[in-house]
Design a protein around this nucleic acid. Structure first.
Lengths: 197, 197
DNA sequence: CCAATCATCTCGTTCATCGAGACAATAGCC
DNA sequence: GGCTATTGTCTCGATGAACGAGATGATTGG
């Protein structure tokens, strides 16, 4: 299960073919047992994490009577709260990729369960600020807390250089995903021009 | 129904106050305090990746006319295919946390779109094997491919020690998530033991 | 062969999400 | 000050994904 991509990588992946084909049949080496791009294994690991995490989230959500989307929303809300950023339905919908109607329903659910409260912004009265309740914070902690503790504990045994390597890798991966997302968002350069009429 | 909420919300508005307000906008140049547990930042990075990845998956799925669940299913199916494991509706449902009815609908969708085919198992004729079509493989690659290439490229600039650190961290994190998932699955130790009965 | 079990599928219901549009408040213009 | 365009949120009706319960067909064991 941990290797969807590696076989494909050699077929479709390296565009054109590297020519490293030669001794591929023999993996008998040492060190990198996989014999392929070293990053591939990391990708697999990462993918496994996201799959498991997703599942854990779904289970946690179901256990607490909320939908996967609700949990995702809570996470974003908690995050915004922590950063001191304004959370509004519009922003939330954007972050979750949801319709405005869906966001209204989502916030309704969250509000009904006492996780957030709608607060009309005094500055721009069009806006509604989403204020997270303690209940939501507690819920968020009960989800992330144990996980965080485990990971932090694991990270404790790394020295500075190793930590830095992990940090950089994670940051670069985040950047890669974000870049891909942007790429997917606008595959439509034809639009930007002289559509004038 | 719930529309009256916003009117009231502004009256409840500032009730406790979180204590942070006013010019929180200027946090200084750094962003956030790095002085915490070193692992915490890694957790945040990781979380950011999963969020973005999830969003990317949803967008990709929408673009190809399938639902987020369909993409997840395809990923699992591709994995199983690669590992040479039998893929069946039952197994798939288990991996995705879905009802058997939902799985039937899911496989119907996938089959209708030509991604998989139902094949009656000759050994145990109760079972239906899910055979992935090339179309699905290509789709999977078009989703993971670019991402993988980016990450692999990034990983290329790391030396063995760094790679090892990242690998270990990822593996430990995966283990942590899996452990948490197991913990969540049976939070019920009191039952098997000296329950009063 | 009959009963128990297992894997899958069918039926009817619930509700999350969507598209389109209504409504309220703000910002810019004169 | 009033007017219009824009922005942010919410409402309505429709679609369909997921669920719970149960039916159908195949396997195992006596």
């Amino acid at each position: 299960m941990e290797d969807t991509a590696d076989r494909q990588a050699q077929e479709h992946g390296p565009e054109g073919g590297h020519g490293r084909e030669g001794g591929r049949g023999r993996e008998g080496g040492h060190g990198r047992a996989q014999g392929q791009e070293p990053g591939l294994e990391l990708v697999h690991l990462l993918r496994g994490i996201t799959v498991e995490l997703d599942l854990l989230g779904a289970e946690f959500a179901a256990r607490h009577g909320l939908h996967p989307t609700d949990l995702r929303a809570l996470i974003h809300l908690l995050d915004a709260d922590r950063a001191g950023a304004d959370a509004t339905p519009g922003l939330l919908g954007e972050q979750l990729g949801l319709n405005s109607a869906s966001v209204t329903a989502l916030v309704d659910r969250l509000e009904r369960q006492g996780h957030v409260r709608r607060v009309r912004d005094t500055r721009d009265r069009r806006r509604v600020l989403l204020s997270v309740e303690d209940r939501a914070v507690a819920l968020g902690w009960s989800f992330f807390g144990p996980l965080i503790r485990r990971v932090v504990a694991a990270a404790g045994s790394y020295d500075e250089a190793e930590l830095d390597a992990v940090r950089r890798f994670l940051a670069e991966t985040a950047g890669a995903v974000a870049a891909e997302r942007r790429r997917a968002a606008e595959p439509d350069p034809a639009e930007g021009g002289s559509a004038s009429g």
